[in-house]
Amino acid sequence: MKSQQPVNSESKEKKRFKLKTEGTLALLLLVLAVFLTIFTKGFLTGNNLSNLVRQTAINGVVALGMTLVIIAGGIDLSVGSVVGFAGILVALLMKSGVPIGLAVLASVLISFLVGTINGVMVFDGRIPPFIATLGSMAIIRGAIMLISNARMIAGLPKPFLDFAQTTYLGFPSLFVVWLILILFTIFLTKKTPFGRNVYTIGSNIEVARLSGINIRFTTYMIYGLSGLMAGIAGILMTSRLANGIPTGGQGYEMDAIASCVIGGASLSGAEGTILGTVMGAFIIATLRNGGNLLGIDPFILQIVNGVIIVAAVYIDQYRKAHQK
């Protein structure tokens, strides 16, 4: 085989590059962490790190579902509303006497269904995902206000509230849930035919169709899972805040999208990884945490946040352009 020589050297090249993709983010995170350790007293303490992962977890869970949608070339603007919806729904169900387990299960399932409806609009209705989920974002938020009368729902059962305060092996429960979902979605994207189909649909839907991929089912599942993740996040939030909050989750779709793109996902589809998104979520949360610890002017912090998003995507594009 005459092409043997280039094969070897290029595959090495490829590996080095692969390390760079998430490596850049890991490095950025490390720099942030070292900086904060040096310049603040509190950053590298168990207490603060445990806070940090708890603060990241809820947005992080939402971002996992968003990653699937973005890899498939779509977008889900309704996740913030679904967070609020599931949070209110679980509270209402428990208040009306439904057992905790059942209330949680029902809320998660309904969130999944709500997500699936987005999938129906996108696949069967051929509505662009941006528009379809923009619509459902408003519809769901309206539904929340309707079922809650725009009021907080308090007086939830204690075991439900205790969950968010529990730790497992020293890790906060919210983080543990996130971790399980991270592992689940990594498995889903890396190891299953479903995951391959998501990437294929994101790269070219016509190719996917002619390759016999069940696009309808896959699209339903992608948006369904995005809803499901948002639903779980909403339930975690209600447990953490001890109240169903009608305004909960507002703007979370933007944080989720930011996590994904910082993590290397491309809004044109077929690019992105769960691990990248997780790091993206950590970077956003660490900035916020660090800003608070240092007492940085919040407006400057906001600017830094924006710069990081743009810079991360720019670096990624630059790296990809120079890869060829």
Binding site: N51, L241, T247, G248, Q250, N292, L293
Partner: peptide
Amino acid sequence: YIDNDIMKALAAAEDLFTA
């Protein structure tokens, strides 16, 4: 500032205690 989001208020308060 917390964008009128309770989660962000909670995070900010925790961080202030830490620092």
